[in-house]
């Protein structure tokens, strides 16, 4: 076989592999949202995070705007602190916004639902490193059932 033919085939092989990588990166994976440098960080304290995990999505009205970067325990109050990385594009949330830990579907995974709050002159916009005060914890099924039984007892 001539060198020329070999070189063409090797070139085609490389192109095919690059095409496969691009497909995996763009069509299969979610490149972009977590790209470093273009996100900012917010914190939120919860009483109970339930099944929330690092890398769980943060959604506004169902649209993913960021991901959970880390989950730590506040060493003074022993409450979970969630660090959120949010896309720089969505940087206009007022400090009256609230976050809740929600579940997608009955058995689905848990995510953070962010609800933008109202804006007036006294309300500031959340900046990098700020905390969201208004939080609602995860609904734990066992507690819910316990409450239900307790109420029926009455």
């Amino acid at each position: 076989m001539t060198t020329r033919k070999i070189e063409i085939l090797v070139g085609a092989f490389i192109v095919l592999a690059i095409a496969a990588f691009l497909m995996l990166a763009l069509k299969v994976a979610n490149a972009g949202v977590t790209g470093s440098g273009q996100s900012y960080v917010l914190y939120a304290k919860f009483d109970n995070i339930g099944g929330l995990k690092v890398r769980s999505p943060i959604k506004v009205g169902g649209v993913v705007i960021g991901r959970v970067a880390s989950i730590d325990l506040d060493t003074v109050y022993y409450t979970p602190v969630v660090k959120m990385e949010i896309n720089e594009k969505y940087s206009n949330f007022p400090e009256t916004s609230s976050v809740a830990i929600l579940t997608s579907g009955l058995l689905g995974e848990q995510y953070l639902g962010l609800q933008p709050g109202f804006i007036d002159e006294t309300v500031e916009i959340l900046a990098n490193g700020d905390s969201i005060q208004d939080t609602r914890s995860a609904i734990v099924l066992e507690e819910l059932i316990g409450q239900f039984l307790f109420n029926r007892g009455n």
């Binding site: 995996l24 994976a29 979610n30 977590t34």
Partner: peptide, 15 residues
């Protein structure tokens, strides 16, 4: 098929 894939596959973690 594609969107659930995109929601669950991460470029760095998986690819």
């Amino acid at each position: 098929y594609w969107s659930a894939m995109q929601a669950n596959v991460d470029l760095y973690q998986d690819v």
